[in-house]
Every structure is written in structure tokens, then in C-alpha cells.
């Protein structure tokens, strides 16, 4: 479903993605972790072409992501993206936030789009907040709205860029619960996160990155209990004592 073929990217002199080869089959839940600056956010931002790449190719559903001639709108419609900082539109209500893309990108009729949006809000447990503005919600609620917004286009893939890092500890659980529910529906997911509990519970595979390279991959149990490399062991030690 998603394939990286020898992908390379530089920010100036910094080699942020270094010969990345990766296959993510349909329905897989992949957790990506690593120290800050390791390139993990950049990696998933390349999948919906928020970032350009300089070498190699990324293929999503037989579409060459970084090819100039592809229908980018269609591609992005298949991929939902959730940001660390939510990035809800502050001037729109919750419902308007969720409806915006279905109405304007997919050209779905307003009434039908509203039904879809309400269903997605129900999925994240926030139907009661449809008329509120983002500023009136807690961080956890905002992030759940952002997930509903991502789901509104009925994507086949959901990408999460550190979805719980900007949240107060007591709100992390509600967001992870929504994500776990998504897993049970068979969604293909790439999640950049350090939430070990989440990884152990639902991830099919954990991928550890450092300095732009994939250092090791494995099942969550293998990775967290018997890391193969010193770097991974060191990193796991740090997030455990944290």
C-alpha cells in the first residue's frame, strides 16, 4: 500500500532521510519512534507530499507520490493527516472544520457532508461539540476533532505526527482510545509516537530511526524487550526513565 524505494532527502547539508526502504502493507499499524531530529516526522510528511524528496520514490496505492503529473488532490483524499499541534481552523466551528474538505474537495452536497461529519464526530465521541469553536475545547478534544477531520475524507491511510506530544498527560488517554478504535476497524496507520503502551497494544511493527536512517524494525515486544542495537536500547532506556 505504501512503499519507500531508496528515498533520500536533505535540508541543506543535513541528510534527513538516508536511503529509506520501507513497505507498509494494507491494514498494518506502524509505529515510528526515535530521538528528536531523527527524521521520523519528515518521513511521514513525505507520504502526502508535504515535503519534497531529492532521490528515490514513494508509491502509495500504485501512485508515484512525487511525480508532477499525478492528481495530488485525489492522493491526499486517500490519506488523513493529524498534526502534533492539531492545526484546527480557529475561525470555524468543529462541524465546519470537519466538513470543509468533503464539501470543497470531494464536492459532496452540504447535507450529506454534514451527515458524514456528524458520524465522524460520533466516532471520536464529540457530537455534542459540533457547534463549538476550537478555542472552547480542551487540547484532547481538539486533537479528536482533528482526527475526525482527517477521517472525513474516508481515507484508506491515516498518518499521525506525534498526536499526543502537545497534550497534558490526563488528555493523552482519550486520544489514544480513539486511535485504538481506528485500528480495530482495519485502518492502515503510521504513527510517530513515543507512547510505548499504545505501540505494545496495537502496533504490528515498530520502526526505530536515528540520524535519518532506519536503525531497526521489529514487533513491539521484540523491539522494546530485546532491542538489537545499542542505539535503540539507549533510546528505550531514556523513554522508560522519562
Amino acid at each position: 500500500m505504501i512503499e519507500f524505494k531508496n528515498v533520500n532527502k536533505w535540508f541543506g547539508k543535513l541528510h534527513v532521510l538516508n536511503h529509506i526502504n520501507l513497505k507498509i502493507p494494507k491494514g498494518e499499524v506502524l509505529v515510528i519512534c526515535g530521538p528528536s531530529g531523527s527524521g521520523k516526522s519528515t518521513l511521514i510528511r513525505c507520504i502526502n507530499r508535504l515535503e519534497k524528496i531529492q532521490k528515490g520514490e514513494i508509491i502509495v496505492n500504485n501512485t508515484l507520490v512525487h511525480d508532477k503529473s499525478i492528481n495530488l488532490t485525489k492522493l491526499r483524499g486517500q490519506i488523513g493527516f493529524v498534526f502534533q499541534q492539531f492545526h484546527l481552523y480557529p475561525h470555524m466551528t468543529v462541524l465546519q472544520n470537519v466538513m470543509l474538505a468533503p464539501v470543497n474537495v470531494k464536492k459532496i452536497a452540504r447535507e450529506k457532508a454534514e451527515k458524514i461529519a456528524m458520524k465522524k464526530l460520533d466516532q471520536v465521541g464529540l457530537t455534542g461539540k459540533s457547534g463549538s469553536f476550537p478555542a472552547q475545547l480542551s487540547g484532547g478534544q481538539q486533537q479528536r476533532v482533528a482526527i475526525a477531520r482527517g477521517l472525513a475524507m474516508s481515507p484508506e491511510i491515516m498518518l499521525f505526527d506525534e498526536p499526543t506530544s502537545a497534550l497534558d498527560p490526563e488528555m493523552i488517554g482519550e486520544v489514544l482510545d480513539v486511535m485504538v478504535n481506528l485500528v480495530s476497524e482495519g485502518m492502515t496507520m503510521c504513527v510517530v509516537t513515543h507512547e510505548m503502551g499504545f505501540a505494545k497494544k496495537v502496533a504490528d511493527r515498530v520502526l526505530f530511526m536515528d540520524e535519518g536512517k532506519i536503525i531497526e524494525t521489529g514487533t513491539p515486544d521484540d523491539f522494546f524487550d530485546n532491542p538489537k542495537t545499542d542505539r535503540a536500547a539507549d533510546f528505550i532506556g531514556k523513554i522508560l526513565t522519562h
Partner: peptide
């Protein structure tokens, strides 16, 4: 970026 990701 949020707008771009939604395909607007």
C-alpha cells in the same frame, strides 16, 4: 499544511 493535507 492542514489545508494542503485535506487536498484543498
Amino acid at each position: 499544511e492542514a489545508g494542503i493535507s485535506s487536498g484543498l
